[in-house]
């Protein structure tokens, strides 16, 4: 199918199989390998991206469902040279250990801060409940999100 959507703020137009998974489209033809595949069944959240500002598992979503919509991936938040506030807090507070769950974690947390700039600790726990991490025990991640909220600038 001829697919048009907004990717990280820019219009994209390309030919894609309608039944391709969004994660495969992002990682292979588009080269956005920051979105990770941890389980392929929507359980681990490593592939979380934002579709119209809502966190979605890119391993479960078919590309036809993003037609005409806005998709934000980890590459759309910031870059190593200029990380977002939230990304910087992840760096400062040791919230990324192996780093494989980190992009998905950041997407869920960013969506939270967009809709709720002043979350409680429980709000954060709830928002990242679908993102599994085996390294950190989650605490540093939660602290980083709360610190970014305290910073008070756009995540």
């Amino acid at each position: 199918m001829n697919l048009e959507f907004i990717l990280n703020g820019r219009a994209v137009r390309l030919e894609a199989a309608a039944d391709a998974r969004l994660i495969d489209l992002l990682r292979e033809p588009l080269g956005l390998t920051g979105t990770k595949e941890g389980c392929g069944e929507g359980e681990c959240g490593a592939c979380t991206v934002l579709v119209d500002d809502r966190p979605v598992n890119a391993c479960l979503l078919l590309v036809m469902h993003v037609a005409g919509r806005s998709v934000v991936t980890i590459e759309g938040l910031g870059s190593a040279a200029a990380p977002s506030t939230l990304q910087q807090r992840f760096i400062d507070l040791g919230a990324a250990q192996c780093g494989f769950c980190t992009p998905g974690m950041l997407m869920s947390a960013t969506a939270l801060l967009w809709r709720n700039p002043h979350p409680t600790r429980d709000d954060v726990r709830e928002a990242i409940a679908g993102n599994l991490c085996r390294c950190t025990g989650y605490d540093a991640i939660i602290e980083a999100v709360l610190a970014a909220a305290r910073d008070g600038v756009a995540p």
């Binding site: 956005l32 920051g34 991936t73 590459e75 990380p83 992840f90 400062d92 992009p103």
Partner: peptide, 21 residues
Amino acid sequence: RHVPAEDAPAKVCGELRYATD
């Protein structure tokens, strides 16, 4: 004093290349 890993910025920005990448 916490010394972030050199690759921490790349990790949090999706720029670190793992084997699958």
